[in-house]
Write a protein that binds this DNA or RNA. Structure first.
Lengths: 160, 160
DNA sequence: ACAAATTGCGCAATAC
DNA sequence: GGTATTGCGCAATTTG
């Protein structure tokens, strides 16, 4: 029953319509507290001593304090900034994904092209090789039988 | 007054590990109630018509309402969910970037390899072509002089 | 009209 | 002693 309601117009800026969220806040804050801080092992050790006495460290004053208000405002600013950055970063990352995707396609296309070129050259090579083989073959005692059969072996399986 | 404190364990989900940070809690809640200015920013824009009468749409009741509380809780849940997703998405995107980057490197390496292969083949080709030219050249009146000299021209600059 | 999903915002705890 | 981050709840808005 210390401070019913009146803390609203303390601020010197933004909105502050008449709407009040008094108790809901309570609830909220309670919920907030509920959650345990992640770190500090010390807390763990402390969880056994629920100080029944002295519930609130900063009961009334403190929030009226000019200083408090100032700090809050500063923090709010920082928060805003931080969130903006965060959002920006997310967008940048997304952008990066798009760029990389494009680049990827480009590279893939190039690979395709090179592969094709390569296969053409290889074929040409084989052909020539065969021709050469046929020509080089000394027709020793050639009895009319022609055996141009060049073994149709593998085309050098492109392993990769 | 209406709803002192007790709203914490109403929910049936989330953590609530045994660990408790009692006093900070109190402080927090107090702080929460204390300040009220967090209402609608819309009000800011509405600065032209500050309805003196009927300040708050939901003055007292409404928040006590079981229904209100229920709605809030549901929304809180939804918010949490949404935020989780958002965060997850961000992480996924980042992951995607990494994957794409890797893929990119792979592709780039492959391109390098293929290029090399290609250039080798091309060189070979040229060489053969020259050899052929030399051979094909009818050595008419071969006087024992051997001229295997095939012009050492360019190695087909690899244009890119 | 309604419920879930998003979004902006402030608070407080914490990390740095 | 300060800013930066993070989780959270509220309320307004958007979306289906």
């Amino acid at each position: 029953m210390s401070r019913p309601l009146q803390a609203k117009l303390t601020t010197t800026e933004h909105n502050n319509s008449g709407v009040s969220v008094i108790q809901s806040q309570t609830t909220a804050s309670v919920a907030g507290l509920q959650r345990v801080p992640k770190l500090l092992p010390s807390a763990v050790g402390v969880l056994k001593a629920p100080p029944p006495s002295s519930e609130m460290k900063k009961p009334s004053a403190e929030k009226d304090s000019d200083e408090y208000r100032q700090r809050r405002e500063r923090n709010n600013l920082a928060v805003k900034k931080s969130r903006m950055r965060s959002k920006q970063k997310a967008m940048d990352t997304q952008q990066r994904v798009n760029e990389l995707k494009e680049e990827n396609e480009r590279l893939e296309a190039k690979i395709k092209l090179l592969s094709k070129e390569l296969s053409v050259l290889k074929d040409l090579f084989l052909e020539h090789a065969h021709n050469l083989a046929d020509n080089v073959q000394p027709p020793a005692g050639n009895g009319g039988g022609s055996s141009p059969a060049h073994n149709p072996n593998d085309t050098s399986a492109n392993g990769q």
